[in-house]
């Protein structure tokens, strides 16, 4: 454990392209961008499907497929195949393949939760809103979306935490991000480095989880103390 402390105190580990700040920035950027891409694609789709009350099979199967396909395999196939391992802007080596893989893994929780949230909105409330003469767009925006918000945010939380974790695994095959500290540690047989890298990744994952718990509390004042 002393070795881990020494690793954190070594200034070399905080500078340059393989330093903690740069990798942390890269890892965060990857997480944010890929979740945003998944939201841009998945949220409208799921809102529309949920509003129409169709596509439940898609929502469920997406989750099952996502669970069965290993991240390592998908990233490898994309990196060796169409997208290549070239560095991509600020995203580092295999940037494109990593971004696409992460966005794909962020899709299932977003689509499934949004769809479920929309479908579970009380039908009576929806009918009442229609009876009041709300247009479909207003109904979606003013009634369904706010009522589905807690589940949508729960999906977003799953997506963010999952992508953060997945981005770590990316380093195992070809990817950028904080996982590189861990893989480098293994390659150099430095247990202290491996543990230090893991601590950073795990600490941020837990912090993200806690932040989202707070957001969820804030977004659903009605459910405080309810569960």
């Amino acid at each position: 454990m002393n070795g881990v402390w020494d690793w954190f105190r070594d200034g070399d580990h905080w500078r340059g392209d393989t330093g903690v700040p740069h990798l942390l920035y890269q890892h965060s950027l990857l997480t944010v961008v890929s979740v945003l891409v998944a939201v841009a694609v998945g949220l409208p789709l799921a809102l529309w499907l949920g509003h129409r009350g169709r596509g439940g099979v898609l929502a469920v199967n997406l989750t099952n497929v996502g669970r069965a396909v290993p991240i390592v395999a998908l990233l490898s196939l994309l990196a060796l195949g169409p997208l290549g391992t070239d560095p991509f802007g600020p995203f580092g080596r295999s940037g494109e393949a990593t971004l696409v893989t992460l966005a794909l893994f962020a899709l299932p929780p977003i689509v499934t939760n949004t769809y479920t949230g929309m479908v579970e909105v009380d039908r009576d409330v929806v009918e009442a809103a229609r009876g009041m003469g709300m247009s479909e767009a207003t109904l979606l925006r003013r009634v369904e979306l706010p009522l589905a918000a807690p589940l949508i945010i729960a999906g977003l939380r799953l997506a963010v935490v999952q992508v953060w974790a997945t981005a770590t695994i990316a380093a195992l095959v070809a990817g950028p991000g904080l996982g590189r500290i861990i893989t480098h540690g293994y390659a150099a047989n430095q247990t202290a480095e491996v543990v230090a890298g893991s601590l950073i990744v795990a600490a941020v994952a837990l912090a993200l989880e806690l932040i989202f718990v707070a957001i969820q509390r804030w977004a659903s004042p009605l459910s405080v103390g309810g569960r």
Partner: peptide
């Protein structure tokens, strides 16, 4: 649930010692 949050690569590595 907290264990589930820890990325797998990190969990494996933290177990190594």
């Amino acid at each position: 649930t907290a264990i589930y949050t820890i990325p797998s690569l990190a969990l494996f590595s933290l177990l190594v010692p």
